[in-house]
Amino acid sequence: MEEKMKILCITCPKGCSLEVTRDGQTVVEVKGGCKRGHEYAQREMTDPRRMVATTVKVKNGVHPLLPVYTSEPFPKARIPALMATLREINIDAPIEMGSIIAENILDSGVNIIASRNMNAGV
């Protein structure tokens, strides 16, 4: 059974409207947007993912929180579980931007990366 639906592309700031025709989990056709938009539509129908940017706790840092982000888009349905796991982290300063704070988190293949340097506080 084919069904048509409209989704909004989030790949770039343009925000194109895409018309997706699908048969169950299979995408039959995508109208509108560009090549990256079509890839997005494909993934959004089968395995929707989002970049997640949040914070983890820091011990002895200049701030109590370290901003972190996912190395690549993370499965959307598991974001609440990701947040719960990150809430348990409490790492020591100093930390350098780009350090891996958690590797292959929740067996997702995605790493959690430090967004900035965090010096140790006084």
């Binding site: 770039c12 940017a53 901003p67 982000y69 931007m97 967004s115 340097n117």
Partner: peptide, 21 residues
């Protein structure tokens, strides 16, 4: 702390603090 910064300057999708760093 959200990402979306630096696509013009670094051709990379960075969080704000990384762009600043």
């Amino acid at each position: 702390i959200h990402n979306g910064f630096g696509l013009e300057t670094f051709k990379e999708d960075l969080p704000g603090p990384s762009y600043a760093q």
